[in-house]
Design a protein around this nucleic acid. Structure first.
Lengths: 127, 127
DNA sequence: CTTGCCTTTGACGCGCGGGTCAGGGTCTAC
DNA sequence: GTAGACCCTGACCCGCGCGTCAAAGGCAAG
C-alpha cells in the first residue's frame, strides 16, 4: 500500500502523512526498492488514531510527546482500548491540553466582555 | 518628535509604528530633510487609541477598515468621545469582532468538552 | 572628528497544520 | 514505447503582530 492509498484510507492526504512522519507521529515506513513509502493496515489504524486526536484539539507536539504510547492503542482490539485515559491521556498530555484550552477560553471570554463593554460606552464604565 | 519618542510616549516600539503605517493604521507622517519620520501629539493620541483597541482584541485588519474614523476619536477632548459606539464601533467592526470571538469561544468550548469526554472514556460514550 | 545612540529600508523568524508548486523519477495500462 | 497518474524531496505560502538582524546613514555631545 503506497502513500496515496494509506492517506485515503485514513481520510487525509499524502502531504499530511509525510508531515506526521517528519514530526515523529508516524514511524518511518519501509521503502520499496525505488524509495517509495510502503504502509500496512497497522499504519492506517494508527493514522486514524492520530486524526481523531488532532480533531479533538490535541496538537502535533502533544502527540509527539506520547508517540510511543500511540502504538498501544493503534488497534481497537487491544484490551486496553476504551479504558479511561488509555488513548487520549498517555502521560497526561490530554489533561494538560484541556487546561490549556480552558485558559484560552477564559482569556477570549474576558477580552470579549471588555470589548462588548467598550461597545456599550467606552469612556464611562471602566476606562 | 522622532519615532522612538513617539513610540515610548504611546507605550510601544518604533517597529510597531512602522508596522501600523505600513498597514494603514497610521497616516504616513511628514519627514525631516533627511527622511526621518516626524510625529506630533495628535499622532501619539491616535497611537494610544490604536493600542487600546488592539488590546481589546480588535485586529489590525479591523482597524484598517475604520482607519479614517479613528481620526474622529484621537482626542479625548472631542465631544463625541465616550458616546456608545463612537470609538470601538465605527462601521460595526467591533460588533463583528465580538461575534467572531463568540464563535471562537463556542468552537473551543465544544472541542474542550469532547476532549474531556474522551478523557473520561473514549470507546464508550459516543465513539 | 569621534563616539554612540537613533533612524532608515528590507527581509526573515515565530507557532500551527499542513497546501501548493517545482522538477524530477516510478508505476501501470495500453 | 508512451500517456497519465502517482511518488520523491525541497521549499515557499497562509494569518497575526510584531521582534530581530543587517547594512547604511543621521544627530547631538565632547
Amino acid at each position: 500500500m503506497r502513500i496515496g492509498d494509506a492517506a485515503a484510507a485514513a481520510g487525509t492526504t499524502p502531504r499530511a502523512l509525510r508531515f506526521y512522519e517528519a514530526n515523529g507521529l508516524l514511524p518511518p515506513p519501509r521503502r520499496s526498492g525505488t524509495g517509495q513509502r510502503v504502509y500496512g493496515a497497522r499504519d492506517v489504524a494508527r493514522l486514524r488514531v492520530i486524526r481523531r486526536l488532532l480533531s479533538l484539539g490535541l496538537t502535533v507536539a502533544d502527540l509527539r510527546d506520547c508517540a510511543d504510547r500511540l502504538d498501544l492503542v493503534e488497534s481497537e482490539d487491544l484490551p486496553g482500548y476504551g479504558e479511561p485515559g488509555a488513548c487520549a491521556n498517555p502521560g497526561g498530555v490530554a489533561a494538560r491540553r484541556v487546561a490549556t484550552m480552558n485558559a484560552e477560553i477564559d482569556r477570549l471570554t474576558e477580552l470579549r466582555d471588555r470589548l462588548a463593554a467598550h461597545l456599550a460606552g467606552p469612556g464611562r464604565g471602566g476606562g
